[in-house]
């Protein structure tokens, strides 16, 4: 585990509530007119992981998941 994580948005679930944006706007955004959240940088540093994990947990649509990006 090198602390790098890939974030996946499930487009079939996301409701663009934007809770993730309020939790970590450097990583998530819901651009004007977008029906779903977008990930601004899909690999985050260990520093960001706590907030990103919170965003994953509090998503009412449960549209976010984390995958280990693996060693590279």
């Amino acid at each position: 585990m090198n602390g790098r994580t890939r974030i996946v948005v499930d487009a079939t679930r996301c409701q663009a509530y934007g809770l993730c944006v309020a939790v970590h706007p450097d990583v998530f955004d819901v651009p004007a007119g977008s029906p779903i959240a977008v990930v601004l940088r899909d690999v985050v540093d260990a520093d960001d992981v706590a907030d990103v994990e919170q965003a994953v947990r509090v998503c009412p649509a449960q549209a976010l998941s984390l995958q280990s990006a693996g060693d590279r």
């Binding site: 934007g18 944006v21 309020a22 939790v23 970590h24 706007p25 450097d26 955004d29 819901v30 907030d51």
Partner: peptide
Amino acid sequence: RDRALRGYR
């Protein structure tokens, strides 16, 4: 101003 909220939180 969603992007502003992280800091206040």
